[in-house]
């Protein structure tokens, strides 16, 4: 995201260390109702979405921060 980078591609995914995938761009996500019965906030209009990587979000496929309390890690702890 520094000045001088080439123009952003249509969809970008950033894997947050110890956290979700951040996705920017026009995407359509198909989720079976059985997987997310709670519904929740509208999501198709958000410009950046966080997709669950740890598997324990209550609003999958979207992140709800639960990864922080289960000790989910994708990188070793800093020394």
């Amino acid at each position: 995201m520094t000045v001088g980078e080439p123009a952003r591609k249509h969809v970008e995914v950033f894997a947050c260390p110890n956290g979700p995938f951040l996705v920017r761009g026009d995407i359509a996500i198909e989720v079976d109702d059985a997987e997310n019965p709670g519904g929740g906030a509208r999501r198709d209009e958000r410009r950046v979405v966080a997709l669950c990587r740890c598997g324990t979000s209550s609003i999958r496929p979207y992140c709800d921060g639960t990864h922080k309390v289960i000790g989910f890690r994708t990188v070793p702890p800093a020394r």
Binding site: L22, I59, C63, G65
Partner: peptide, 25 residues
């Protein structure tokens, strides 16, 4: 409750951007 539902999802996005790109940047 819509306000709070929205924040569960939105702030899971915002915390990543705010911590890394904003404060870290």
């Amino acid at each position: 409750v819509d306000y709070y539902d929205e924040h569960v999802e939105a702030d899971a996005v915002h915390e990543q951007i705010a911590g890394r790109d904003l404060a870290g940047g």
